[in-house]
Design a protein around this nucleic acid. Sequence first.
DNA 1: AAGGCGATTGCCT
DNA 2: GGCAATCGCCTTT
Length: 207
Amino acid sequence: MTPKIGITAMPKTTDLTRSAVTVAPQLLGCRLVVIDAQGNRTGGIIVETEAYMSSDEASHSFRGISKRTAPMFGPAGHLYVYFIYGMHVCANIVVGREGDGQAVLIRALEPTIGLEHMSKRRFGGLITDEEVSKKYVQLTNGPGKLCQALGITLADNNAVLNRGRLLLQPGKSPEAIIVQTTRIGITKAIEKPWRWYIQGNQWVSKK
DNA sequence: AAGGCGATTGCCT
DNA sequence: GGCAATCGCCTTT
């Protein structure tokens, strides 16, 4: 589809009990931070999201509650982490009312906190300054990459935000240019314009 | 009980 | 741009 471009003021707080289609663009500019067992903080600004509803063929919740999708039907503010393609995990923020089965997939972050720890998790050990500059964008420009960089694993599935090691903080940037377009990597409901990203941000996985 | 495939990534050409 | 890697979940026998 032709992307729609608009200027959206980012709210200071986001009401996660609103629908995924409402919350997904509002999460842009918010900060996601993870604190590991050693107290190290890694995180960044959310720059790309996708909404998944329950009456949505592309959504894991489409066929109802199951052992895997149960967190999606829980209360808002939990994380739904799932394993995909045999080697990656992706993280969603559960939104809507309990039982709705809605979530927002976090597809990309602009890294801001703990770059060296993220680099270690993504590329293994220390890398040279030259490599860092080249791979900087590769740290968190995808849903699987950002989970690896922040150390999010299946152990975080169904965890509650802001009550433990996972933090979701309001954005500080008052406004940004938001692009609304179609979702990526799915084969069903590809026409739904339920992906949002910050225009011009280099960590967006696909422009 | 078995088979197909996915909200991806990285490496190869 | 194409494709392998890799495994849990869901659908179908």
